[in-house]
């Protein structure tokens, strides 16, 4: 192997040589099968490197990130809220009495949490009365434990099924018409989810569709949360 030549092969491959050096390398390569073979190998190494696939992590890392970006304000990671506070902040919840702990971060929740926070600050500064999140609980105080739910994974299904259970357990506390309205609207959302899912099957690379599906799923969770909260507030 001619190292004085092979040392130039990477630069040759990357087009980093001056025209004169380039010509010299090319004329050597025409007469040297060994160096031509090395060049061929290097070309294949580069091709292989460019083809390396990008694999996502084995574990979903989002929870850890969400925890750290949510602590950006004063809000601690795990907090106990009363129901009215949650209603005010539009954060998803489930009663601890149901033995389940979930949290969710969606655009509405994060936004309304921001709104609640800044409004709190504003109202304190301007008029001194209590912020909405601190209003007196009109319903029985329930300690709500909060954890994280992402809309793209199995946790979501688990959260939905937990809410459905909570709603089922509490449904006798709601009047029939309210139950009918909630079920009718869940049907509408399910239909939308199904259509988005079918469309995504025929067009899997369509990022609009995946985002749309996430939105519809979020909406379903939100409605279930709201309905489950109603069963508790009606105590």
């Amino acid at each position: 192997m001619h190292e004085e030549w092979t040392d130039k092969l990477s630069d040759y491959l990357d087009d980093e040589l001056s025209p004169r050096e380039r010509q010299a390398v090319e004329s050597h390569l025409r007469g040297c099968a060994e160096c031509a073979a090395v060049l061929d190998d290097l070309t294949r190494v580069v091709e292989r490197a460019q083809r390396l696939d990008r694999r996502p992590p084995r574990a979903d890392l989002w929870d850890g990130i969400a925890a750290r970006i949510e602590t950006r304000g004063a809000a601690p990671r795990r907090v106990s809220f009363t129901l009215p506070q949650l209603a005010a902040a539009a954060v998803v919840l489930i009663a601890a009495s149901a033995g389940i702990a979930w949290q969710f971060a969606d655009r509405a929740a994060s936004r309304s949490a921001d709104i609640a926070r800044s409004t709190e600050a504003q109202s304190r500064a301007s008029s001194g009365y209590e912020a909405p999140a601190e209003r007196e609980p009109s319903a029985e105080r329930s300690n709500i434990d909060i954890a994280h739910v992402s809309f793209a994974d199995a946790q979501y299904d688990a959260a939905v099924s937990d809410f459905e259970k909570a709603l089922q357990n509490g449904r006798r506390r709601l009047d029939k018409t309210t139950i009918a309205i909630v079920e009718h609207n869940l049907q509408i959302i399910d239909q939308a989810i199904e259509q988005a899912r079918q469309a995504l099957e025929t067009d899997p690379a369509n990022d609009y569709l995946s985002g749309h599906l996430v939105d519809a799923r979020r909406r379903k969770l939100d409605l279930l949360r709201r309905a489950a909260a109603l069963t508790i507030e009606s105590d």
Binding site: D53, R54, P57, W62, A105, S110, R111
Partner: peptide
Amino acid sequence: RGDASAFERLYRTHVARIHS
């Protein structure tokens, strides 16, 4: 603007490349 769910979408789009 502080929208965590938009950020989650960004995370999901880019995590494979960054993690690799």
